[in-house]
């Protein structure tokens, strides 16, 4: 693969991770999170500051960035308990703007100049797009396995019940608040990890990397792909990361007006295909299952 392909793939992989992380909060726990990029940014800046200013080992910085982001997610989770869904959406949008303003003004985050981040070495070799791509891929695989395990556990049952109806969930023994906070912690921590990876791959981060439009991008990926599934956010993120690049050769419109395209698609999907392109009720998935059954002659269940 050429360097260009790896560069796009590495970015796409980070967005796959972000989409998966948001899906835990929005898809599984049903919380209206509109500011995922803020936590992406918290993880990015935390890990970058740790390696740059405090010379912490890259891997340790990734972990610490993830944990600190999860801690911030816990605070948001606590706040969310007091809020109705619409207010939570507005609050998280607000948090996104506040975080961007902080990144853009605090001296520790490099203020408006942004932060230069030294690319780490791995076995004596400086890590490039290729290494970061594979690193992110490994993380994605681990996260997917953890999600699969979650969906087969009582934890997954609890989230599914809460997502459906919180009052009913309580009526069969589920401490809804506790699970909501846990979902916020897990979902934001993964976004924080994605941030740490992103910062060290790019070598430079600025507040605009974590703007509200990025939150909308991530949300679009989840919704367009298929909220509440594993394949949905992955395919949605790939589609929306790769498509604009591919179309760049045709016209600059899509990449120049990314936010417009994402926002438009988001609205259209919610209106006409709320299950997403790859959700279980999607014609694409039903069609492929039908073809699959014709070929194999037996019933196949969608993952």
């Amino acid at each position: 693969m050429s360097a260009y392909v790896f560069s796009i793939s590495a970015t796409a992989a980070v967005f796959v991770l972000l989409a998966l992380s948001l899906n835990i909060i929005t898809g599984y726990a049903g919380q209206a999170m509109m500011g995922q990029a803020a936590f992406f940014g918290i993880g990015a800046y935390t890990a970058a500051i740790l390696t740059e200013t405090y010379h912490v080992n890259f891997w340790l910085a990734l972990i610490l960035g993830m944990l600190f982001t999860g801690l911030c997610g816990a605070v948001l989770g606590l706040i969310s308990l007091r809020l109705q869904a619409d207010f939570l959406a507005i609050t998280t949008i607000g948090i996104n703007f506040v975080m961007v303003a902080l990144f853009n003004n605090m001296s520790i985050t490099g203020a408006s100049l942004g932060l230069n981040v030294t690319k780490p070495s791995f076995f004596g070799r400086q890590m490039g797009n290729q290494e970061f791509f594979f690193l992110t891929l490994i993380v994605i695989v681990i996260v997917c396995l953890l999600i699969v395990k979650m969906r087969r556990s009582w934890f997954g049952m609890a989230l599914a019940s809460i997502n459906n109806d919180a009052a009913a969930a309580r009526s069969f023994g589920i401490d809804v608040s506790r699970y909501q906070i846990l979902a916020f912690i897990i979902g934001t921590a993964i976004a924080g990890l994605a941030g740490g990876i992103y910062a060290h791959r790019m070598g430079y981060i600025a507040s605009s990397d974590f703007a509200f439009t990025v939150s909308i991008q991530i949300l679009s990926m989840v919704v367009i792909g298929g909220i509440g599934t594993i394949r949905g956010p992955i395919l949605g993120a790939l589609l929306l990361s790769v498509l604009p690049e591919a179309l760049r050769f045709v016209s600059d419109f899509v990449s120049d007006y990314r936010s417009l395209v994402y926002g438009g698609l988001l609205v259209l999907m919610v209106r006409f295909m709320p299950g997403g392109l790859f959700g279980s009720s999607s014609p694409i998935v039903r069609g492929s299952l039908w073809v699959f059954r014709k070929i194999t002659g037996k019933g196949g269940a969608a993952a």
């Binding site: 556990s153 009582w154 934890f155 049952m157 609890a158 023994g173 589920i174 506790r178 846990l182």
Partner: peptide, 9 residues
């Protein structure tokens, strides 16, 4: 009786 938070994972 299984919904015990993180342990239920």
């Amino acid at each position: 009786h299984e919904y015990t938070g993180m342990r239920s994972y």
